[in-house]
Nucleic acid binder design. Structure first.
Lengths: 210, 210, 210, 210
DNA sequence: AATGAATGAGTTTTCATTCAT
DNA sequence: TATGAATGAAAACTCATTCAT
């Protein structure tokens, strides 16, 4: 038991080091030596846990997807309105990656690799399901729903990579969800452009007491 | 002149081969041997035109950005409404990359490289300028405007990578711009929800009777 | 005593596993991990008994030579005719290695290693002494006697490695000794060429009427 | 043509270096670096000609067998008496390996590898065919003929590895063939034991004027 | 100028050996 | 004492780059 636990800890340490390194450098610039040093293990130890560099890399990518997935899942409240769920999902993902912006690099999709693709698909479905519950999207053709989700997720990536350092994940999440759900009318806070019957939705510069 | 011309042709052939290869494989899997073979030149010739693999790679990336930039520029009509300009810009970019979907991989941003960053910045500004003219965005704080543009561009990427093969660039462009400018209410085609004075905006499989 | 006994057992188990493995694979393909697994001991334990892989290997080789030696020694009857002794020696060696054909690989001689060479020398001498008693060889120059013994032993190796599975050690031993001592006239069974007072010497499939 | 020729020369140089090294050291002690140095080529060049160390090794072994084979073939005169042919075959092989005694190490047989086994088989057949023509062997059962050939070849190995440095290949060849064909009566030169009608066959210390 | 064989610095990977448990 | 996870020196192998042709 203790044994097993220790192995898990070491494996995690290696994964963590690898994830950090692969996020910072391109595959070919991230040397196994560096991963080993960063994980404070011998190079041989790396190979006890991951038979090749490729598999280690692959594991980090799947792990990143798993993190996204679990953040998304935790953001879903079964009975909550979809807009709220989408916001929470988004906020959780952004919060998780906020200090790990580099990791986005890992999510570069390998359409070729089936397992990789599979992980992504699960994530897409999760958002799709939530979006389907939204009245505004209910009537969409399946293909349109799908592409809408892709566009939505595309914004995650952009948000994390190009965010203003002064911004915060919750705010950005609100912006993305609002933009997505309500369009540019709701993006930012413009009393004059916002129809009075639509609740104002926050913007960086307009979190009025909420 | 003939001489010069021939050199240009060869350089272009190399660039084309390299772009294709770097789009398909990761940097470390795209070997100079392969580029040479694909360009139908000797490996030595590669080095007459590009001193290192890195520079060749770099050139392909800058080239891709330049293509985006020129497509965007050509989409701008000085006096046209911004919505129309944004649509044309988007449609042009999507059309250009439609059969070159892989090339998106090249746009992976190296925040570190200044020239790279510079090219990107030009593109972002171009969109930003157009968006600024849009009434809905006019009042946005600069930081919000910026992130809005990033989200917008983020959708380009998603659209190109994950588009339905049955879709078409103009349709997708319309979807993106509409989503962006009007929000989900305008996304897809809902006769009943679309005000009669707003032109209907296409959806691939628009099910309007539903 | 019990303690000592246990150690001996374990050492023997390791030797046995190592001998088998080194016989089956080349030195560099026989890993210490495999030896340990095969001997049902931990890898660390290996090193309690043999300080290095080389020494373990070495031990297996010397052991094989020792086995040959003791088989040879047991085959010698001081007052028996040399032909009979040579036959018994040969039969014993072949019988010992019959189910261990691979082990011959271990006998590959390292001319460099003095102890190794020493073991071999003892074996050679043993045969040499016996041969010297044989009238047919008595007058040989020492160098010729020596090479004769080497040729004789060379046949052991060939016999064990390339024997017909249907053959049996005693038969093969008889063939070797006969060939060696009497030449091809005596090899195989030819009633007509064999003087009546000489016992016929068996051949596996002796077709004498042909 | 010149090109092809140069490649052949380089390949041969590598093979030669590798053969020498593999003959001197065990596989795992012969490093690719060493082969490269010995062949006066870069390490990369090695890999242009042989994709792995294993294949290089393998090639050296097959080459050694091919040498034996061609020496044997050249020793065969279609109409000469088999005894003479066997003598010439033996003498040629011993002469070839005389200054390359180590190379015998390469002939260690890998029963597993089919190509390897195949090369050996061709050699065995060649000798077998010759032996079959010999009256003394004509009546042997196939299995006995086969083992006889194996014993014969076994003597080659012993002769080369354990020969007296003062001996010479022709002498040793005569001894082996004589021993094999006539038995110990003919081995060495003993006027008194040799029937007057049998021509005396040379021994190291008894080459009387021939 | 164009080529592609040659190169070797720099990687990945292995495995005998150690040593904490 | 026995173990097997950890180690890193040493080996195999790669591939961007060079350079003789």
């Amino acid at each position: 038991m203790k044994r097993q636990h220790k192995k898990e800890r070491k494996r995690a340490a290696i994964m963590q080091a690898a994830t950090a390194l692969f996020s910072e450098c391109d595959y070919h610039l991230a040397h196994m030596d560096d991963v080993a040093a960063r994980a404070h293990v011998g190079k041989g130890t790396l190979y006890r846990y991951f038979p090749t560099k490729d598999e280690l890399y692959f594991a980090t990518v799947l792990d990143a997807w798993d993190h996204i997935h679990s953040e998304l899942v935790e953001g879903v409240g079964a009975d909550d309105p979809p807009a709220e769920n989408l916001y929470r999902m988004t906020a959780r993902v952004l919060t998780f990656f906020w200090p790990r912006r580099h990791f986005i690099a890992l999510l570069r999709d390998s359409m070729e690799n089936p397992e990789w693709r599979g992980r992504r698909e699960v994530v897409v479905r999760l958002v799709e399901n939530e979006l389907r519950r939204e009245p505004a999207a209910r009537a969409l053709a399946p293909a349109d729903l799908r592409i809408a989700v892709e566009l939505f997720l595309g914004m995650y990536r952009a948000a994390l990579l190009y965010r203003d350092d002064a911004s915060r994940p919750e705010i950005l999440a609100r912006q993305i969800v609002t933009l997505f759900l309500e369009g540019m009318h709701g993006f930012g806070a413009h009393a004059e452009t916002t129809p009075p019957d639509r609740p104002r939705i926050g913007s960086t510069n307009a979190v009025d007491g909420d």
